[in-house]
């Protein structure tokens, strides 16, 4: 698998590294950040915590509302993007890059197969 895989709830997951060092980088898509508007705070998961696919991963606070982010895959949190504590707007500016939310060690790679690739996700967003 290369590139990002996407959920219908507008989260992405991207595999980085090889073998034992392989991690899944998780965040929200550009569509999601545009819908949220200006982000002012992000509550991130604690390293060591386990999340299930579809379980709550983070909470994003925009000026007006709080939105939950669900994990696109099951796994253990290796690290969270603490830089967002001071610069939550990174998610607006660069959601697939600097605006990543957490890195996970995945438990079941077959879960990725149920997610959309970039073309499928683009078509999905256009259908909204």
């Amino acid at each position: 698998m290369s590139g990002e895989r996407y959920t219908k709830d507008h989260e992405y997951v991207r595999l980085e590294g090889q073998g034992d060092d392989e991690v899944a980088v998780v965040g929200v898509t550009d569509y999601a950040q545009a819908q949220l508007g200006d982000i002012v705070f992000i509550e991130l998961p604690e390293p060591g915590a386990r999340v299930d696919k579809g379980g709550q991963l983070a909470t994003i606070e925009s000026v007006k509302a709080a939105s939950e982010v669900y994990s696109p895959i099951s796994g253990e949190i290796i690290s969270a993007n603490d830089a967002l504590d001071d610069e939550p707007g990174s998610v607006n500016e660069d959601p697939l890059g600097r605006g990543w939310l957490a890195k996970l060690r995945i438990v079941d790679a077959t879960e990725l197969e149920g997610l959309m690739d970039e073309n499928a996700y683009r078509a999905f967003v256009e259908s909204l």
Binding site: K8, D9, H10, E11, V28, A32, Q35, L36, I60, K64, A65, A66, S67, E68, V69, Y70, L128
Partner: peptide, 14 residues
Amino acid sequence: MDEHASSPAIAETP
């Protein structure tokens, strides 16, 4: 993503 009740949802179209 799922916005709380008081404001428009992201994932749901109106």
